[in-house]
Nucleic acid binder design. Structure first.
Lengths: 351, 351
DNA sequence: ACTAGCGATGTAACCGGTTGCCTGATCGTT
DNA sequence: AACGATCAGGCAACCGGTTACATCGCTAGT
């Protein structure tokens, strides 16, 4: 067991209050006394116990982060953004993956009671009603990319809908008419928003556009199978827009296998801009989602709410997405190797 | 503020001790009393405060995880493995990225004092001496992929050296003689081990093999530049073995730009098996490092040490790597599209 | 009838800090 | 010389649980 505050106080022949003041830099201590105490602290290798401190101050300097899954780029980028923002503010992160049911999510939330100053939640189950039921009223929470009903909580959302609309407009703009969409899981918030964006844009762009929606589950394999179904159709499809990049890559595999040229025979686009997107051939047109930024903004939001619970009004903030045009959508960039275009991506080698 | 144990006790007209017994399922409580207490718990929406509980039991059920960086697949896989294992044991994860100096790492460690039951550390600075200085003696720690001196701590390491040796042997086995190595950062443990494996294998395989070591920093860009340096040499190079996949991808870009065919003119291999490796063209031969498994094993290790500090002897465990042969190393698989070979990778689409 | 033994519950100390309030000393003022 | 202001520092309650030990009532054993 390490030394405690009382040990230090005894050794330095002062009261615990004085030691505490020195540790926390609150004034009103003589130079001399302070030096003596610091000497003892050093000698005893005293390190304050965070848990005890949290108990008496009610502050943990920790934010609980609940994510539905920890798989892949998508989440690692969010975590990275959150971590950076947390570091800037001197906050710790308590990470929890909630894989299963709403019940598991609820359990995770209670287990965090007292341990965190605020909650950052991304989960299909986490709408406001759910939180009201399971989260303590005294722990502020903000939602990321989750369905928000009512405004009892702040939330940060990607502009999935706008991004999908932009991509559809772009595809239509370069002449594609029959644009198929491979949707994601039905119960996934991002997926339904992207689908909605596709539908909106198709409707808006007029009746000569031909809608076609297939269902996938965000996995590469489901994209592969969807592409096969598309190839089996009688009618020709001009373009395939997958609700995420992994499914687009699955499509690409299927098209390659079937000797269908991309973008020659069919245009292809994804969503997310995972790092792989610019490395495949042809480089994949996609919609970039700034996950790290989303994470960082959300952390800033919850940090503000945690430090001034009452003063922070609830709001919903939309984080913009960005259309990334590469060769796969056939937008006049017929460079098959995609070399020149790859340089357009971030982190391209500097010559 | 939520209800406290004392509130519940008062409402149920029992002592706090009895409520505590009911909450923790320790017997010796009448059915009747238990029911009454649970009723009040429900009504008051009482949730025990984890911090208070930690303070009095000395147990936090939390493991602190310190990683040098949160960037990329590599770390997200580790985190995923750790999270899975932690979930199985009902442990929480306190995540911290230590970007900067050893001083920052030390600070992070102290800040965790009392908050965690154990530490899982991956850091270039974290050798045993460092830990002895900065970590409390009462907090067990295990190291991942870090230099271990002495045996005051357990550690889990990737078999970087063996993996590099295997790749060199493979490259030599398919006929390459002049095998260049692009090393990683000099102060990085993985990097130096991989370099050592390369050197060992080259030495072992005889004097007709031609060594060439260039230095990179694990970034794609540094790989790109290293490839340019290689191309500028007078002597021809048969194969390039990069110490990680990102640098190998940088090489690939450079070779493509210079119209140097891979694997026709030069073979290429990487290390890590990031998901992208099987998607590039040609698919990249590499050494797979089971990061999730490493994370899971390490978590199991620290969990054991945390629950029975004395009973757990220190040990070093080596986690095996796996040679993944694809088209880029020119091992007789001349399929340029790499279609057939891509299927060899995990998660290939099921037809 | 007496008591050892047991099960249900209460009492209060404790975990390790923080902090409001109080004391006593020093110093400046008039 | 008396008095209020200012400051260093101590006292003790408090945060919200846990748990060793004490207590009390009841039953079974002799």
């Amino acid at each position: 067991m390490g030394a405690t505050l009382r040990d230090v106080a005894r050794e330095a022949r002062v009261s615990t209050a004085t030691v505490s003041r020195v540790i926390n830099g609150r004034g009103n201590v003589t130079h001399e006394t302070r030096a003596r105490i610091l000497g003892v602290v050093e000698r005893l290798r005293y390190v304050p116990d965070s848990v005890a401190r949290s108990l008496s101050t009610g502050l943990t300097h920790t934010i609980g982060v609940l994510l539905p899954d920890l798989h892949g780029e998508f989440f690692s980028e969010i975590i990275r953004g959150i971590d950076q923002a947390a570091r800037r503010r001197g906050l710790h992160l308590l990470l929890s993956g909630i894989h299963g049911s709403a019940a598991e999510a609820a359990l995770a939330i209670r287990a965090l009671k007292g341990r965190v100053d605020g909650l950052l939640i991304m989960s299909p189950y986490a709408d406001s009603a759910f939180l009201a039921d399971h989260s303590a009223d005294d722990t502020p929470a903000v939602l990321m990319n989750s369905p928000v009903r009512g405004n009892s909580h702040s939330s940060f959302c990607l502009d999935n809908r706008g991004g999908a609309r932009a991509m559809v407009r772009h595809l239509a703009g370069v002449g594609h008419r029959r644009i198929a969409f491979i949707a994601g899981p039905r119960d996934n918030f991002d997926a339904t928003e992207r689908l909605a964006g596709y539908c909106e844009a198709m409707a808006e762009l007029g009746p000569d556009l031909k809608e076609l929606v297939l269902h996938g589950d965000f996995s590469e394999e489901s994209g592969y199978r969807a592409a096969q179904r598309i190839l089996a159709l009688d009618e020709r499809t001009d373009a395939v827009f997958a609700a995420n990049d992994m499914m687009a890559l699955g499509c690409l595999h299927a098209f390659n296998e079937a000797r269908v040229s991309v973008p020659g025979d069919v245009a292809l686009a994804g969503f997310d801009d995972i790092p792989m997107a610019r490395f495949v051939s042809p480089p994949l047109s996609t919609v970039r989602v700034p996950m790290a930024e989303l994470g960082a903004r959300a952390l800033d939001g919850i940090a503000a709410a945690a430090s001034a619970p009452a003063a922070t009004p609830n709001f919903t903030e939309i984080v913009a997405t960005e259309l990334v045009v590469r060769a796969s959508c056939g937008a006049g960039l017929r460079d098959p190797g995609g070399e020149s275009d790859a340089r357009r991506g971030q982190r391209a080698p500097v010559v």
